[in-house]
Design a protein around this nucleic acid. Structure first.
Length: 872
RNA sequence: GCCCGGGUGGCGGAAUUGGCAGACGCGCUCGACUUAAGAUCGAGUUCCGAAAGGAAUGAGAGUUCGAUUCUCUCCCCGGGCACCA
């Protein structure tokens, strides 16, 4: 085992400074007068029983570095911390151990708080919040009621994703490959009454407004894909009973016109639509009663119904596992009329058509859609080519797969010869189709049938329906119960507590029942960043002044390309905040990040917040994987406990190590073996202090060891050190902004190496090194700063700036190439002309050798950088 | 299948308007110090070659005086979505 340097005792130093900072309230956001404000945010930890993960430290350290740099740059910084507590892991743990979730939460909070404090993050601890605190979830409930009052929270009976192990309904976002995101059990479908939040009402703005925020491009792309905006048209198909054609006697068999509307993005292929397909669920709604009333005589209704039943029973996985193998049933007795060709085409039902996308019905164009093609092949339906890549089409080929590319129209009457893009609009217009935008995004299933969540603050009265709990009666507190176990019936355990459930209706005072479903664990985190601004407010979820104060905290953002915004309507004022910079995990992109944007937009529409987006900037860090490149997990026993690393190497070393491991936005593999490098670096910085000779503190403490160094000159005369110093200031400053922490640290190491090799270590150079290193390693730099005789904290120092006078160098290093291969390096004066460089270069023996007798064809010269001499 | 990343020494990784490939760190080798080990310091460490030199950034082609970087074709790894009409 490696031994660590003894004079740098991280155990003593780190505890000492943490206590001092806390006593001095050094990192409390001051809320003084004006000035630049900066709100740095990390995702507050979920209070799992496993304690802090090295992944938390990666994200927290990054934002801590940025927060500390901003303070040094004169910003007023808010960097808060809190706890996300509700949800299944805590509840399951409580059930397993028999402890109450409240107690478990308290214990976990204490663990997390201790661990986070041991790492020296500059959090404002006076603003701690906890989503399970009634004083907090009162406002989560209050916001829910605002949704309810606006009709955006509604109850709906529908087939939902049900996890048979966790006994809980899941949101679409929580289902991964047909399995429960949490426990991996295959998800079943269940008909249940659920509370829903109408996030789809905001689909358009959630997509469009991404243009106004500075998120990593891949985050935007992932959200856009999830929202799944697509522009198309709805086309009406008339439905006729086939019997009515052959038997014209009966009036009943000549019903009023019936229509099916389909959604398509390929109106250009309408002439190739050879059948239409309904989602089974839609067919049931549409034709069941009509069939019974014999408006339409469907000859095989029994068969159709049987298929509908089969589909209902299928689980998500069964549906996906079957993959491309299509199933379906023709509805016999009716036909649809293709509005372009006026032909009668058959009507089918099949589960490859989804009930909740578009209209739940499609026109099938087998020649130009892969799924329709497979279906047509299986059921022997006609394939009609209407788009050809070449025009005029050479001859009609037999397709072995659908052609989905662009081309010119064929077999489409007067539209022949048009490009399919032109035809899209013209055909849609000709058949009176209206433009429609569809989204993949679904409304958010918002109820959970479990104990450990915010109770939904509604009361059901037989007379009045659902009535909101009066604002003065909030919060609706979770009752203390003996049994938290979920019930297999799909009812929350709260339903069993008669005393809690039975209440008076707030409206009519009759006997009524409380809603017993609770909210999903995403509720509390959808607005927590607002509560940090005013965590103790009893009257409002956030005070107006506090909100206004921090809502202007967003930095001037760099110009970001506004993708397509010119074409889209921007009728409302767009502004992002209060959060200036939010870092977190990629895994929350389509969950928490999307949900909280939705909540914020709603609050904005209600006038409660003044910005249309909550986060001006969002970045994301890669995962930390266990050695071997696998995920850390308790079951694999490869979880790194940060406590042990802090104890052995110190918080500063761990922070440096995690930032140095690799590119911040990419996954990195943990290597305990490599940590020593970060520790050695800090030890070298420590030892370097002993060579800053003119200071008394060092000379008294370490006098005996460094008499040799003290005799050397202390003047900062070494220009290479000066140049390196300014390069370092520049590089570190830039790299922090772009989150390239690994190369920032590498530069600090390079500079440290340079100082070690220098004949003398100037006080200026050393202290600047400490200031640049301080955000990364706050404790050891604070200690060394004190040793330099400073009375004030290093973390109140201003950020070093590059002095432009020292940036340029007098000497340029020029690479000399012959035929593109490096052959020599020249040191010449800055700004040497091509002639001068050429003369000097060709004089060099190592260049001469390569030039030989051959003639020079060409010379490429990049001033101060490179010369390439091209010969035969 | 579609959409994002990524592929560079024994390992983590540097290198951008195309211009010194392998910075920085880990590991390893040799040396100094030490009774010894560790720590520390010094030298070395892509491959082939004794050297001169040559080859090399997943594979192959192209553009260029010059390609890790740009273009095309393909392979592999990670992540996301997945019958979304």
């Amino acid at each position: 085992m490696k031994l660590l340097m003894r004079s740098y005792d991280h155990r003593k130093i780190e505890k000492k400074w943490q206590a001092k900072w806390e006593r001095g309230k050094c990192y409390h956001a001051k809320e003084g007068a004006g000035g630049k404000k900066f709100y740095a945010l990390i995702e507050f930890p979920y209070l799992s029983g496993d304690g802090l993960h090295v992944g938390h430290i990666r994200s927290n350290t990054a934002m801590d570095i940025i927060a500390r740099k901003r303070r040094a740059e004169g910003h007023e910084v808010l960097y808060p911390i809190g706890w996300d507590g509700f949800g299944l892991p805590t509840e399951n743990y409580a059930i397993k151990t028999g402890k109450s979730p409240v107690l478990v939460t308290k214990q976990n909070t204490n663990t997390f708080r201790r661990q986070l404090k041991s790492l020296g993050f500059s959090f404002d601890w006076s603003r701690e919040i906890n989503t399970t605190d009634p004083a907090y979830y009162k406002w989560t409930q209050w916001i829910f009621l605002q949704f309810f009052k606006d009709g955006l929270a509604y109850k709906k009976k529908q087939a939902i994703n049900w996890c048979p192990k966790d006994l809980i309904g899941l949101a679409n976002e929580e289902v991964v490959d047909g399995h429960c995101e949490r426990c991996g059990t295959p998800v079943e479908k269940r008909e249940k009454e659920q509370w829903m939040l109408a996030i789809t009402k905001y689909a358009d703005r959630l997509d469009k407004d991404l243009d106004t925020v500075d998120y990593l491009e891949r985050i935007k792309i992932q959200q856009r894909n999830w929202i799944g905006r697509s522009e198309g048209t709805q086309i009406k198909f008339e439905i006729r009973s086939t019997k009515s054609e052959t038997n014209s006697k009966s009036e009943i068999q000549r019903p009023k016109q019936e229509r099916i509307e389909v959604f398509t993005t390929r109106a250009d292929t309408l002439f190739g639509a050879t059948y239409i397909v309904l989602a089974p669920e839609i067919a049931n709604e549409k034709f069941k009663s009509k069939n019974e009333k014999s408006q339409f005589k469907i000859q095989n209704w029994g068969e159709v119904e049987k298929y509908i039943e089969q589909v209902k029973k299928k689980t998500e996985i069964q549906r996906t596992e079957e993959g491309k193998e299509k199933t379906g049933v023709e509805i016999k007795g009716i036909k649809a009329i293709n509005p372009a060709t006026k032909e009668e085409i058959p009507v089918w039902i099949a589960d490859y058509v989804l009930p909740d996308y578009g209209t739940g019905a499609i026109m099938a164009v087998p020649a130009h859609d892969e799924r329709d093609f497979q279906f047509a092949k299986k059921f022997n339906l006609p394939v009609r080519i209407v788009v050809c890549p070449e025009y005029p089409a050479p001859k009609c080929p037999v397709l072995d797969r659908a052609y989905i590319g662009p081309g010119h129209l064929v077999g489409s009457g007067t539209f022949d010869g048009l490009t399919n893009e032109e035809a899209k609009k013209k055909i849609a217009k000709a058949v009176g189709a209206k433009p429609v935008i569809s989204y993949k995004l679904r409304d958010w299933v918002f109820s959970r049938q479990r104990y450990w969540g915010e109770p939904i603050p509604l009361i059901h009265c037989d007379m009045c329906g659902y009535v909101p709990v009066a604002e003065k009666d909030l919060p609706v507190k979770l009752p203390v119960v003996k049994n938290y176990k979920p019930t297999a019936t799909g009812e929350s355990p709260l339903a069993a507590i008669t005393k809690w459930v039975t209440v008076k209706c707030p409206k009519c005072k009759g006997v009524a029942r409380r809603e017993t479903d609770t909210m999903p664990n995403w509720a509390g985190s959808s607005w927590y960043y607002l509560r940090y601004l005013d965590p103790k407010n009893k009257k409002e979820f956030v005070g107006k002044e506090k909100l206004a104060y921090w809502s202007h905290s967003s930095e001037k953002l760099p110009a970001i390309p506004l993708r397509g915004i010119s074409r889209r309507e921007t009728s409302y004022k767009l502004q992002a905040g209060p959060v200036s910079w939010y870092n977190g995990g990629m895994e929350h992109t389509t969950l928490h990040l999307l949900y909280s944007r939705f909540w914020h937009k709603f609050l904005y529409d209600k006038g409660f917040v003044s910005t249309s987006e909550p986060y001006a900037k969002r970045t994301s860090n890669g995962l930390i994987l266990a050695e071997g490149g696998v995920k850390m997990s308790k079951s694999k026993g490869n979880v790194i406990n940060p406590d042990e690393i802090v104890e052995r190497y110190g918080a500063d070393t761990l922070r440096i190590y995690e930032m140095f491991m690799g590119p911040f936005d990419q996954p990195v593999v943990w290597s305990t073996e490599s940590i020593i490098g970060s520790r050695r670096f800090l030890e070298r910085v420590w030892r370097l202090g002993e060579r800053v000779t003119e200071h008394r503190a060092w000379s008294t403490e370490h006098g005996a060891q460094n008499t040799e160094h003290r005799t050397r000159s202390t003047e900062a005369t070494d220009t290479t050190v000066q140049t390196a110093l300014h390069q370092t200031i520049k590089k570190v400053s830039e790299d922090i902004e772009t989150m390239r922490f690994n190369t920032a640290i590498s530069q600090l190491m390079i500079f440290t190496n340079a100082l070690e090799k220098a004949s003398a270590v100037s006080r200026e150079a050393y202290q600047t090194l400490l200031r640049l290193l301080a955000p990364f390693a706050p404790h050891v730099t604070e200690e060394l700063w004190g040793k330099c005789g400073k009375k004030q904290s290093i973390h109140t120092e201003s950020w070093p700036v590059v002095s432009s006078a020292l940036e340029g160098t007098a000497v340029a290093t020029i690479v000399i190439q012959v035929n593109g291969k490096k052959r020599a390096i020249l040191q010449l004066k800055n700004g040497a002309t091509e002639g001068e460089v050429r003369e000097a270069a060709t004089a060099l023996p190592e260049v001469k050798k390569w030039l030989g007798e051959s003639t020079i064809r060409k010379v490429i010269h990049l001033p101060n950088k490179l010369m390439n001499i091209v010969v035969d």
